[in-house]
Amino acid sequence: MYLCFGLWGFSAVNIEQILGLITLGISLARIDFAPKGLNPPHTHPRATEILVVQEGTLYVGFVTSNPENRLITKVLKKGDVFVFPIGLIHFQLNVVDGDAVTFAALSSQNPGVVITIPNAVFGSNPPISPEVLAKAFQVDKNVINYLQKQF
C-alpha cells in the first residue's frame, strides 16, 4: 500500500486477484474516502483511469506532460465521471465533511503499481541525496531533510 491521507479503504480487482482478467485489458478499484481524505499525487504507468463518483464531492486533477505541465481540475459530485490519461500525475481530494465513494476503471489488466509521487521522491530507499532534491525543488536542504523524515 502507499501513503494515503484519510482513505477508509482501497479495493483493487486486477490480474493478481482474478486471473480471468488476463488479456481482457481492464481493472477496477473502489476507493472509500474519509472526510477531507486525500489520494495523493500518483500515476498508473500502464493505464488510463476513468473515475466515477458514487457518493460525495471530490476535487480531482491531473498535470499534463512536460513542457506545458498544465493542471486540469474539476469538482465532482455524485454521478460525475473524470478521466486521468495514462501515466500522468493525478490526485483526488474529498472536499466535504462526509464520506466519499468512487469506482475507478483502468484500461489495463495490469495498470502498474501505483507510483505515489511524495513516497517515491522523499521516501526512496536509499534516500535521494538532499543536495539533489534541494536543487531540484529550489529549497534549503533542511526542508528536504524534514520531508524525508516524514516518510
Rank of each mutant, 00 (worst) to 15 (best):
Val81Leu: 13
Leu28His: 13
Tyr146Ile: 08
Leu106Arg: 10
Pro41Leu: 05
Ser11Ala: 13
Leu93Pro: 04
Phe91Glu: 04
Pro67Phe: 03
Ala29Thr: 12
Ser108Glu: 03
Gly61Val: 00
Asn69Val: 00
Lys78Asp: 13
Thr73Ala: 11
Gln17Phe: 07
Lys135Arg: 15
Leu3Gly: 07
Leu21Glu: 12
Phe10Asn: 09
Asp99Thr: 02
Val114Cys: 12
Phe5Val: 13
Asn119Leu: 04
Ile128Glu: 00
Phe103Trp: 10
Glu131Leu: 04
Ile86Arg: 15
Arg46His: 15
Gln109Phe: 05
Leu51Trp: 00
Asn110Leu: 11
Pro41Thr: 05
Leu58Asp: 02
Pro67Ser: 04
Glu68Ala: 11
Ile144Tyr: 05
Ala29Asn: 09
Ala120Cys: 06
Gly112Ile: 03
Ile72Tyr: 10
Asp99Met: 01
Val121Glu: 04
Val113Phe: 02
Leu3Val: 07
Phe122Glu: 06
Gln109Trp: 04
Ile72Gly: 03
Glu131His: 03
Gln150Cys: 09
Leu51Asp: 00
Gly87Asn: 10
Leu88Gly: 09
Gly6Met: 02
Ile115Gly: 13
Val114Ser: 15
Pro45Phe: 07
Leu24Arg: 15
Lys78Tyr: 05
Ser124Leu: 07
Tyr59Glu: 12
Gln138Asp: 12
Pro45Leu: 13
Gly79Asn: 07
Gly9Gln: 02
Phe151Asn: 15
Glu55Tyr: 00
Ile26Thr: 15
Lys141Trp: 00
Asp99Val: 01
Lys78Ala: 15
Ile144Gly: 05
Ser11Phe: 13
Asn125Phe: 03
Phe10Asp: 05
Asp140Trp: 02
